[in-house]
Nucleic acid binder design. Structure first.
Lengths: 218, 218
DNA sequence: TGTACATCAGTGAACGCGCGTTCACTGATGTAC
DNA sequence: TGTACATCAGTGAACGCGCGTTCACTGATGTAC
């Protein structure tokens, strides 16, 4: 594809390797990922990857961050789409709710549409899975989660949620949406058609948003 | 441990293998499971397992079903404990809610207390992960999920939930609880102390139960 | 503008590993007479 | 009660596999003069 085919030097190997990880994860799932499968796909010797990454894990993490960004992008798009349907004459709370719904539905739809990428993005889920102290400040919040936090803050600003209700609200929200994505992706719903999953996902999102308000019982 | 040590025949190998799977999953996580690790732990040749199981997957599934039963048992215990705190003079709805909370909290607490077993139980999550048609009628609902369905039906009987609200209610419930368990177990909350997880988990359960009621907004 | 040479980005072969599974076997068990 | 023998439940060695990583290498690139 590049200008000079068949050169000894690949020329653009680093991004090509990341692309290959994404392609394999997309088609076959994360469990098919391996250094050798990735380099094989690119058409390069296995050890060539070591010019660009410390080890296979580092390559995998680089690709996972790309997948995570795509997830965040999907969430932003969904949010925009829902916000566009809100009339500016409507109360601010309506827009805030649309935004929060967009965050949740975007997450779920991405998982359904791209289960392989979704699973890949989750590899960065565990802050330091190799058990190392992780003194490194990757402490920054992952973009998808930040979108949720912002949407919840927006709910408070719009008066759709009280400051008390806002406290820890990210966990019920993320739990519900993430749990549904997991169930739809790896679990018992995985063979259901996309429309069914989409409808159930919307139901999950609506129920958890409704539940953020503390009312009567108890 | 058995009466005759050092015999050529183990004598009770099948359950011993299942126990070994449970022990490895408990201590090291599902990712440390292998036929060889399991037989090594029992002190038997790797191929000895083939006397009792078709292949490694079958052994793994047998152990996963045990883990699933233990999860269900934990859920039942938690439910009983919460129900015991409900005065019989209180309205039926209170008991129904306590029962539903018990189901959710039991799931979450089991995941926190025994993450390895929880992960093992999830291996039966996917109805037929090897891609086979699975004509076999393992169609019966897994015990933990059945407990949720029953608790939700109990909510309707007690008048704590309308039949309309009951529809598909299992998905928001399971999504929230399962998602939290995943986040607490494999995700960003995994290094948090048990008390924090327990408190957040309770919050998640309460929010999703509250959300089952369809009210005002929209 | 042309050449020398350091640097860079790949190759090729090999390593040691643990895996699931197979094969032909052998020792122990328990039943029939 | 004692022996013959089929059955059962293990052993031991080997298989082929794909893996991540290492080593010494070589061809291509680009800079200095």
């Amino acid at each position: 594809m590049a200008t000079t085919e068949e050169t000894y030097h690949h020329g653009d190997l680093r991004p090509a390797l990341i692309d290959a990880v994404l392609e394999i994860a997309r088609d076959g799932g994360v469990e098919h990922l391996s250094l050798r499968a990735v380099t094989r796909l690119v058409g390069v010797a296995p050890n060539a990857a070591y010019r660009h990454f410390d080890d296979f894990r580092a390559l995998t993490v680089a690709a996972a961050l790309v997948a995570q960004d795509r997830l965040a992008a999907a969430m932003r798009e969904q949010t925009s789409a829902l916000l566009a349907q809100v009339d500016s004459a409507q109360p601010a709370a309506d827009a805030a709710i649309a935004r929060l719904r967009g965050v949740g539905l975007g997450y779920i739809h991405f998982a359904i549409a791209e289960p392989g990428w979704f699973a890949l993005a989750l590899l960065t889920f565990d802050p330091n899975s190799s058990g190392e102290p992780s003194v490194t400040v990757d402490a920054q919040v992952p973009p998808p989660f930040q979108l949720l936090l912002d949407a919840l803050d927006g709910m408070v600003e719009a008066g759709a949620l009280s400051p008390t209700e806002r406290e820890h609200a990210e966990w019920p929200c993320w739990s519900a949406v993430h749990g549904f994505a997991d169930i739809a992706t790896r679990g018992p719903l995985q063979r259901q058609p996309a429309e069914v999953l989409s409808a159930l996902g919307a139901h999950v999102v609506d129920r958890i948003i409704a539940g953020l308000h503390q009312h009567q019982h108890r």
